[in-house]
């Protein structure tokens, strides 16, 4: 039988000890036993360079390196240990501009505080069930940010060259 969640190596990056403990406990309930912990982005990078990590759960606001900077390092650094690693950003800062900043840094999922088991598991489910394509361009590397436009995609008529090309794919 294929190994499931018990084979995953996770890393929790969070400066609050209680939140770290809670996230570890929730991952443990899924069977994830290998859970590393870091108190800020720089410490997380050190761990990521030393060992293979399959899933990163990171807070946004931490010092000296916050979750956005960690994400940008992971996605864009030439020496990144894993540019494709799924990153769930956990934050109490849910203002639109902050969410957009997290998305533009390249996070895979955003989990708003207060953390619930249901919401955390839903994000992990999304990563496993609907893994996203990555996009690389001059200004961005990370998961395709357009997934929520899928439902109301324009069906034509098409005017621009890119649109026509897309229509042909359909």
């Amino acid at each position: 039988m294929a190994a499931g969640l018990e084979s995953i190596k996770a890393l929790v990056v969070e400066d609050n000890t209680h939140m770290r403990s809670l996230l570890r406990a929730l991952l443990n309930t899924l069977g994830v036993k290998d859970v590393g912990e870091a108190i800020h982005g720089q410490a997380a990078l050190d761990i990521l360079r030393e060992r293979k990590i399959d899933l990163v759960l990171t807070d946004l606001a931490m010092g000296p390196m916050d979750g956005l900077e960690l994400t940008r390092h992971l996605r864009n650094d030439a020496n990144s240990p894993n540019p494709f690693v799924p990153i769930i950003m956990i934050t109490g800062h849910t203002e639109k501009y902050r969410v957009e900043a997290a998305r533009d840094a390249g996070v895979t999922e955003i989990l708003a505080k207060p953390v619930t088991a249901h919401n955390l598991f839903a994000r992990i489910t999304e990563i496993l069930e609907r893994p996203r394509a990555f996009v690389r361009c001059d200004s961005y590397f990370g998961p395709d940010r357009r997934r929520h436009q899928e439902a109301d995609m324009h069906t034509g008529p098409w005017r621009r060259a890119d649109d026509l090309q897309e229509a042909e794919v359909r």
Binding site: G4, A133, V135, R146, D162
Partner: peptide, 21 residues
């Protein structure tokens, strides 16, 4: 439903990069 990336961008499908499981 496959979409194309914006002009000049590269799309990397999930099958083309390592998945968790």
């Amino acid at each position: 439903k496959k979409r194309l990336p914006p002009s000049g961008a590269q799309f990397i499908e999930p099958d083309a990069y390592p998945q968790i499981l």
